[in-house]
Design a protein around this nucleic acid. Structure first.
Lengths: 142, 142
DNA sequence: TTTGTTAATGATAATCGTTCTCATTTGCAT
DNA sequence: ATGCAAATGAGAACGATTATCATTAACAAA
């Protein structure tokens, strides 16, 4: 199965917790999950996997390049499947919805801005916080 | 004095802790301070101000627009004086030094990227994590 | 000035996300 | 099947931050 293959090729022993966590990201509708989200989904799915293991596995997956970690406002880390396509995020201030986007001009400019100041860009983090102007925003409170 | 004036015009009662914290930012060489940094500097300066108060005051200042809060990697919030001049940050991966920069092209593009996707940008957060290419980096470990 | 009211403070407990510890279990090569 | 290193789970520990609450300070009114 694909989960096991991904793990093996990432240099990770394929254990049950790792398979389940990876499957969550591959199957789940939500792309952006926190450690707590993952833990709850596993419990809800009848799995008996400890929270500590969830944190460990998520960090391993990040290091292995399977997941990308984001630091949105709110203190907690959020993970999403690394599908090679780098992108940044627009966070809706009304409903919290996260929309992905990628702007080549911004990407290029960032590298240049760093270089001009004597830095070699390693990575970057860009979030835009905004209000929906379209009527599709559910305005979900909280 | 200027500190008191700033506080009053921000709608805040001018108390000793608030005056001292604000003075720290106005006078101190470092522009980017965490709550812990502020607390330690106050102690070092002979002030007897509680950590809880520091956190409260920093948050109040943020809401009053006197300070801006940043969420760099590492979990802790970092504050700097709000001098009206928006800018983003390059964080050195070797020494942790923070350099400010502002790129008009990136700013404009962000607004446009949001607008194209049906959002009105309210604010944004951009950090570039990079390695110094110049020999000035002190490589201060941790 | 003294006084009174209310907001601000400081000490400390509590909370939250996350990491650590360590005894037990599991994956997997023998 | 067997052994052993690596992985796990439960819970303690941790660091940053927030909440609680009794005490104190700021400031307006007398």
């Amino acid at each position: 199965m694909t989960g096991t293959t991904n793990l093996k090729s990432a240099g990770l022993k394929s254990t049950l917790p790792r398979i389940k966590v990876l499957a969550l990201f591959e199957v789940s509708g939500e792309r952006h999950l926190s450690a707590e989200d993952v833990y709850k989904k596993l419990l809800a799915g009848g799995e008996d996997i400890g929270l500590a293991t969830v944190y460990r596995v998520l960090t391993q997956f990040e290091h292995a390049g399977l997941l990308v970690r984001h630091h949105f406002e709110g203190g907690k880390s959020v993970f999403e499947l690394n599908q090679g396509n780098h992108h940044d995020h627009i966070v809706c201030l009304q409903c919290g919805r996260v929309e992905e986007f990628c702007d080549a001009a911004i990407e290029a400019r960032q590298k240049k801005a760093a270089a001009e100041r004597g830095f070699a860009m390693h990575s970057h983090s860009l979030q835009i916080y905004a209000d929906c102007t379209k009527p599709r925003c559910p305005h979900k409170p909280k």
